[in-house]
């Protein structure tokens, strides 16, 4: 049923730290590796070794240059499904293939019911859903629903593959509906934000903005190298000889 639950018992989701993400793409490949054999398998690749590579990915890492009056910096930005509290991708679905779970708030697709009309991908402002042209259905992040409840895995591995893979602990998983949970505390402490809050989708996942620029950083004593204008005469000859 594509009507949304009035509330979910838990709000499982991710907290992504834009301060510590180094853009290594480990979460991207770990996600692809797990999910191409998981709940929404396969994550089809089209022409993987050709000139027009395409394929389904649930998690993609962008890089941005954020420039303010305090200076500029590179921000690596992982983008995946935010498991919104009011996901329009679910309500627009005409077949009931998309749904939001009452038990934990995860947004999923029943692939056997999907007709591939693509309307859900239009309704998602974040680009979280990708169409599998090979299978003819829409696919999306499952929050690794086949890992987090998986009794066959060691308890510490019962987290989404992206979280398990992150070498800088920039990704955190937990119940954002519980104000006492570690992720909720982290969001409160670091001033975590919603993406595109003005659209009113109420995403569950939160992003921790990069920490403020420090004023205590060491100043660089050496001057930047300057280009030397080519000179003629004896000094010019010396310069050319020494440059060789």
């Amino acid at each position: 049923m594509t009507c949304l639950p009035a509330h979910s018992d838990k709000k499982l989701g991710l907290v992504i730290d834009l301060d510590t993400c180094v853009g290594c793409q480990a979460c991207v490949t770990a996600c692809k590796e797990w999910n191409t054999g998981g709940h929404m398998a396969p994550l089809t690749d089209i022409d993987p070794y050709g000139g027009h590579v395409d394929g389904v990915w649930f998690n993609r890492v962008h890089s941005y240059e954020h420039t303010t009056e305090m200076g500029g910096r590179t921000v690596n930005f992982p983008r995946s499904c935010l498991h919104c509290e009011t996901p329009a991708c679910v309500t627009v679905c005409p077949t009931g293939a998309s749904y939001k779970r009452v038990s934990d708030g995860i947004v999923l697709i029943d692939e056997d019911k999907c007709i591939g009309c693509k309307l859900c991908s239009w309704a998602c402002p974040y680009g979280a859903r990708e169409f599998d042209t090979d299978v003819g259905v829409m696919k999306k992040c499952t929050l690794c629903v086949d890992r987090i409840y998986n009794d066959n895995l060691a308890e510490e591995d019962r987290v989404p593959a992206c979280v398990a893979a992150c070498p800088t602990s920039a990704r955190h998983f937990g119940d954002l509906g519980d104000p006492q949970s570690a992720v909720s505390q982290l969001v409160a402490e670091r001033g975590g934000v919603d993406l595109m809050p003005e659209l009113g989708y109420h995403p569950t996942n939160k992003y921790l903005p990069p920490r403020a620029h420090t004023q205590r950083a060491a100043s660089v004593p050496a001057k930047a190298l300057e280009p030397v204008r080519a000179e003629g005469g004896f000094l010019g000859w010396v310069d050319r000889m020494l440059s060789n």
Binding site: D54, R60, Y64, T67, T68, F77, Y126, L195, E198, P209
Partner: peptide, 22 residues
């Protein structure tokens, strides 16, 4: 607002992929 990076300008440096995706 799309990236949660407040103030200033946000310029795309690098896409996650080299070719056009879905």
């Amino acid at each position: 607002t799309a990236t949660g990076l407040a103030g200033g300008t946000v310029r795309s440096l690098e896409w996650p992929h080299t070719e056009e995706n879905y």
